[in-house]
């Protein structure tokens, strides 16, 4: 049955995506949470009550809602709120770096693999190899060679997520390669690089953005994991993973010291997931209406 044609619905595509997004309650919630998380990370130096490394030996392990320490203090008397704000900042830094790496490496490889058949086999085998290689061993190896640090954690996490990005971009390229506007460009003898850059990449951007919102929370958790194991960000720089690791020693005396950073990780991931899902639905409304 042919779908009804609603003539009024010829608005610009950007307006349509935005309208669709605003109709999705969970998506709006995710978006708001995302803005709050981003604001917390960006403004941490100005809104944090203390320096995250400042110790208060006289007031260790204070409960939340203590005067002067809204979320309490840890075993060294450091303010948990300030550490969470800075930890979020570190998490997002690693997240953005890793996602950027996965896009910069993954998108061109995915485009090339999808467009040129002969490259496909090579890239796909490399992808399988990366996927088969345990990510933790990669991270340990990198930490051993270059030392444990925020940027090395981001590199390890970025490399670990390159295959996902390659697969998504490759699939999108394969789909778009058959589009008539690509055939039209090919019959002009336009070069492959030109077609990829002017027709396929711009049309694949929505998928890349959606995939980035999927990788982001995975990277945030990955960073917490690496820092927890001592392979990522090094103390005294605050990280949500380090906070968890420190807090586990006295988890029965001060459960909030572990709960609060854990909650922060959850909020960050949930914000990205909800917003990413809503964005995917808004960019591809055909599948759900």
């Amino acid at each position: 049955m042919s779908a009804p044609v609603v003539e009024a619905d010829l608005g610009s595509s950007r307006g349509r995506v935005l309208r669709h997004l605003l109709h999705n309650k969970l998506g709006v919630a995710g978006g708001v949470a995302l803005l709050l998380v981003a604001a917390a990370a960006l403004l941490a130096p100005w809104i944090a009550p203390y320096s995250p490394t400042q110790v208060h030996f006289e007031t260790p392990l204070q409960q939340p809602r203590t005067v002067g320490f809204p979320l309490g203090t840890d075993d060294l008397g450091r303010d948990i709120l300030s550490r969470i704000l800075y930890g979020t900042r570190a998490s997002l830094q690693v997240g953005i770096l890793a996602v950027a790496l996965s896009i910069v490496v993954g998108a061109p490889l995915g485009l090339a693999a999808g467009y040129w058949r002969w490259l496909d086999g090579i890239v796909s085998r490399l992808t399988d190899l990366t996927l088969a290689f345990p990510f933790l061993i990669l991270a340990v190896g990198l930490a051993a060679i270059r030392g444990a640090s925020l940027s090395n954690a981001a590199i390890a996490l970025g490399i670990a997520h390159v295959p996902q990005m390659i697969r998504v971009v490759r699939a999108e390229t394969l789909r778009l390669k058959g589009a008539e506007y690509v055939l039209a460009a090919r019959s002009l003898d336009a070069s492959g690089v030109r077609i990829l850059a002017t027709h396929i990449l711009p049309n694949a951007v929505p998928s890349i953005i959606v995939q980035a919102t999927v990788i982001m929370p995975a990277v945030v958790i990955g960073e917490a994991l690496l820092s927890f194991l001592g392979l990522g960000i090094q103390p005294p720089t605050p990280s949500l993973g380090i906070m968890l690791s420190d807090a586990q020693q006295y988890i029965f005396r001060a459960p909030y010291a572990a709960l609060l950073p854990g909650l922060a990780i959850m909020v960050i991931c949930l914000a990205f997931n909800l917003f990413g899902d809503a964005l995917r639905d808004a960019l591809d409304p055909g599948g759900h209406r």
């Binding site: 002009l188 027709h199 049309n203």
Partner: peptide, 29 residues
């Protein structure tokens, strides 16, 4: 030699303006 394809929805790159679509052959050459 230039093509015109069937699908009026699929034959134009949705991310480009009409001007960019029409002048693509001019740019390529």
């Amino acid at each position: 030699m230039q093509p015109v394809f069937q699908d009026p929805f699929g034959s134009l790159d949705p991310t480009k303006t009409v001007e960019r679509l029409i002048d693509e052959p001019l740019r390529v050459f």
